[in-house]
Design a binder for these strands. Structure first.
Length: 424
RNA sequence: GUGGGUGUAGCUCAGCUGGUAGAGCGCCGCGUUGUGGUCGCGGAUGCCGCGGGUUCAAGUCCCGUCACUCACCCCA
């Protein structure tokens, strides 16, 4: 065992898998940029109270999964467990809400939850997310969902599903909540579940245990208790989703772990990931900004799990990072050639071509082996003969064909061959 | 936080009822003079997770510990 180990539950990505990680993150962010979302870079820690107020004191995320510490001034800070609260804070603090609405922002980076690690559940997790604040147009709900769906589709994923429901609003949810609590009162539940039913009854709905689900067959659901406004809103969202050709399943018992959600709520799950199947989710949060001291603006957003999406791609056998690391591999034979090779590699790199070369004195055979492993489609070979004649050999690794070109035209010749292959 | 499983070469793993370690892949080299991928030959690499105990003897049994892993809980 190595003397030092990464903290428990923290995934690390290094070659070759890190290429796939980057590709996934890029694929998740791309649709957001295509839809007019601007990038926001946020602190990874905030005042603890921001999360307590924003995410909700009764949530597991805040009550037992935060990394909280005191700074030297005695302030309580926490590593961010999710992204929305921080985005809201920044919008209010920087007066973004005074500008054009809706404010549309995307972000990416690490989040932290002190949970027991599991396949796809990490203490440092990567997410790509977005928020759209300042409009309750149901078309915006549909846009956010369609953007997430496009992100997964773009990667080639197919074994996933979208669950959708509406959680109502401050008008209709309290009454439903009463109704639900009354129903749960009559159920036979263990102490822990009973406690949850009292503090956050909705969360009992997605309890996985058979013993609990069996009692919930006739449980009242929120979608049947929506007020006029919420019902109209939800109908419109679904219509727009049809217009956007997004497929979903009605999930009246869908519950999310964060308290701020209202109205439209959704979750993407992948069927090949085991217990940690959620690959992304989000929803509307109409009262959040106001509760954080901002204007009374509604908002909607999502968070997509980068780690889990990568796992999903791997489970489906998708080759996300089809591209190799380099385009050209330079092989010098002998010390004189090495000096030429260093210059050649630098020139090629200056032209934007990705180049690696053979280091150490491993001989031509070994160098060619290294060239092969690098995955470069082209190899530039330089020996004493080439040094004498100021030339180089360009070898095409796919068919073994080799041609002599002058050093002056090398960069252009390599460029031409690469663009012919479509690698540039 | 609760329960189950596993920890042996870089990787995947084999080591039966205790006798001081193996395979495949990978890696390095060779198969003559300047060319990779196939094939053949050769080679290097292990505090058998860590600590303790039983024993003449422990990778193999017992206890502890750490790590990883699966599930619950929760969520991305």
């Amino acid at each position: 065992m190595a003397e030092f180990q990464a903290p428990k539950g923290v995934p690390e990505y290094f070659p070759p898998r890190s290429s796939a990680f980057l590709a996934v993150r890029e694929a998740l962010a791309h649709p957001a940029r295509c839809a007019g979302y601007g990038y926001i870079e946020l602190p990874v820690f905030e005042d603890t109270s921001l999360f307590v107020r924003g995410v909700g004191e009764s949530t597991d995320v805040v009550s037992k999964e935060m990394y909280t510490f005191l700074d030297r001034g005695g302030r309580s800070l926490s590593l961010r467990p999710e992204g929305t609260a921080g985005v809201m804070r920044s919008i209010v603090e920087n007066r973004l809400d005074k500008g054009a609405l809706p404010v549309k922002l995307w972000y990416a980076g690490p989040f932290f939850r002190a949970e027991r690690p599991q396949h796809g559940r990490y203490r440092q997790l990567q997410q790509v997310g977005l928020e759209a604040v300042g409009s309750d147009d149901p078309a915006l709900d549909a846009e956010v969902i369609a953007v997430a769906d496009e992100a997964y589709r773009r990667l080639g994923l197919s074994a996933y599903r979208l669950d959708l429901t509406s959680l109502g609003c401050a008008e209709c949810r309290p009454a439903y909540r009463e109704q639900l609590m009354a129903f749960l009162e009559r159920c036979d539940l263990d102490a822990a579940t009973r406690e949850r039913a009292a503090s956050n009854p909705l969360r009992v709905l997605d309890d996985k245990r058979e013993s609990v689900q069996a009692q919930l067959v006739d449980v009242p659901v929120m979608v049947d208790a929506l007020c006029e406004a919420c019902s109209t809103h939800y109908d419109a969202v679904r219509e727009f989703l049809r217009d956007a050709s997004v497929e979903w399943s009605e999930a009246p018992r869908l519950v999310r772990g964060l308290d701020y959600y209202t109205r439209t709520t959704f979750e993407f799950t992948h069927e090949m990931l085991g217990a940690q199947s959620g690959i992304g989710g989000g929803g509307r949060y109409d009262g959040l900004m106001e509760s954080l001291g901002g204007a009374s603006l509604s908002g909607i957003g999502f968070g997509l799990g980068t780690d889990r999406t990568l796992l999903a791609c791997e489970a489906e056998g998708l080759d996300v990072a089809a591209d190799g690391l380099v385009d050209v591999f330079v092989v010098p034979i002998g010390p004189a050639a090495r000096r030429v090779a260093v210059g050649v590699a630098t020139q090629l790199r200056g032209a934007g071509i990705r180049v690696d070369m053979a280091y150490g004195d491993r001989g031509l055979k070994g160098s060619m082996k290294a060239a092969d492993r690098s995955g470069a489609p082209l190899v530039v070979v330089i020996g004493d003969d080439e040094v004498q004649s100021s030339s180089a050999q360009i070898k095409n690794m796919a068919d073994g064909a080799q041609e002599t070109v002058t050093l002056e035209s090398l960069v252009a010749d390599v460029g031409a061959r690469l663009s012919q292959k479509g690698t540039l």
